[in-house]
Design a protein around this nucleic acid. Sequence first.
DNA 1: CGAGACATGTAACCTGTTACATGATTCC
DNA 2: GGAATCATGTAACAGGTTACATGTCTCG
Lengths: 205, 205
Amino acid sequence: MSLRHALLGVLAIREMTGYDIKRQFDRSLHFYWNASDSQIYRELRRLEETGMVRSHWIEQSDKPNKRVYSITPEGERELDDWIRADISWEEVHDKDPFLLKMFFIGRLEPEEIRGILEDRLRQLSKAIEFYDRRMVEFANIERSRNPELLRWQLMLLEGVREIDTAESNWIMRLIRTLDRELAAQRGSAPGRPDPPVDRGPDPAA
Amino acid sequence: MSLRHALLGVLAIREMTGYDIKRQFDRSLHFYWNASDSQIYRELRRLEETGMVRSHWIEQSDKPNKRVYSITPEGERELDDWIRADISWEEVHDKDPFLLKMFFIGRLEPEEIRGILEDRLRQLSKAIEFYDRRMVEFANIERSRNPELLRWQLMLLEGVREIDTAESNWIMRLIRTLDRELAAQRGSAPGRPDPPVDRGPDPAA
DNA sequence: CGAGACATGTAACCTGTTACATGATTCC
DNA sequence: GGAATCATGTAACAGGTTACATGTCTCG
């Protein structure tokens, strides 16, 4: 159960409403974690019951009133303990629907497999473009409060970029292998002239 | 909800009891998916209610009686539809507790961060060793039924190996950066003489 | 005039975890 | 004698998803 820690983590940056937290999740955390609004509101109330956060209402005339949450010292202790706690080696990938699919993909015909791999490649490219955009944003925001936090978040973006690039390279190799086999099967028959390779992300950071 | 599809996937290989499925998960799927026994038994009953699988009891004198499940044609259709269905690009990483931790790791002191990164590196090494052992096993089993399925499962192992190696390289770089900064801070003071670098997995496949 | 941002929540349901219960056989 | 393997399950609870409900202000 890491939602509570994700909430504590963002509240440690600054105090926020449930709505703000949702936006923060969508903007900068959605690759590592996500949550629906109703789950966020429910969990915030639970965190308040256990003294990890506290809240107060702010009345607004132009916009709906809001409840602003802030982290307590106990909440910060809980957060840091969680960051320090280690994850067992068997959970390196935990649950990953794409890897699970790959485990069974040999059931399908080569042409279908090719399509699925190309989709994945496109999605990885989109993700990599997203990381690149965020990295540019970081270069501009930097030097605010929390410089250390931001520095590590930037390094994290570099990391996921490398990880996704490695996956892209693997998938491109699989597609090339498939194409060679498909070409051999129909013995230089009509159809695709040559592997289009679907330009993946450029490996240069 | 992919547990149902993981169950259908393994039952498509051969008929099995809930217990067999649990073992199969632990042995070859635990990096991509996992489930507790009670969850497996519950889900199997639901799959039977919806006609995706069927079961029959086998009486045994030496061991407890068992209920053997097999997939139905509807189950196979459902399975293949799921494999074909695509995953949105925003879910490339979905929920990942380690990446979430990294997002907040800047809260801790450099020495603590170093320890966490080293732990991760050790875990990645263990995972990579596991993949290597599995790949050797595959070379020996191969050429049974399901040659296509096994071929893709082997390529999957190569893939996760590459992905984890990329992550290891990133983390090693972070540790080196940290060490340089720590050394600079204490201005060639006592303590560690030089970065031990914690020999990561060898990049050669 | 409609869409979207702002803002919080309930209810019902599904998914996942943990603890408990049972009991024979086999191996050390 | 005790642990591991084989084998299936229930009950209670926690975590997560989806649909629904409400209402104002602002911008195009």
